[in-house]
Amino acid sequence: MNKILIASHGHLASGVQSSLEILTGMGNKVTVIDAYVDDHDYVPDIKKFIDELDGQTGIIFTDLFGGSVNQKVMLEVADHENVFVITGTNLPIVLSVVLEGEEITKAKLEELIAASQVQLVEEPKDDTDLSDDSFLE
């Protein structure tokens, strides 16, 4: 199981965790930081997550590139090559990483990210209905 931290401005992180729990029952597989909802200093929480990896691969999701949460994460992650940081986090990418059985590599992450983009919803063009026979082939 890949170790995962989600850190956001406000309750996005715990909100993603809530969706994850409803969809997969795996909400407890992620650590979350809801920054700035109170006066709590969350930097030690980032440190703790990285320390507890003990050299294993970890993935940190942040909400906004260049945002302060992302900045604090980048400062802590410096020199830790076992930690990947993903920003602009959305629910599909978190789900893909949580459900990924294998250990995450950079190439794998790039593939999952490419398949998790925000998109304009349009009616599917391929509207062909399968026949019983082609379904059972």
Binding site: I22, L23, T24, L95, L99, F135, L136
Partner: peptide, 16 residues
């Protein structure tokens, strides 16, 4: 829906 599409088809390994 989400639970079915994401999780169960993977768990059950069902192509159809």
């Amino acid at each position: 829906h989400g639970q079915v599409a994401l999780v169960w088809t993977k768990e059950l390994d069902t192509p159809g």
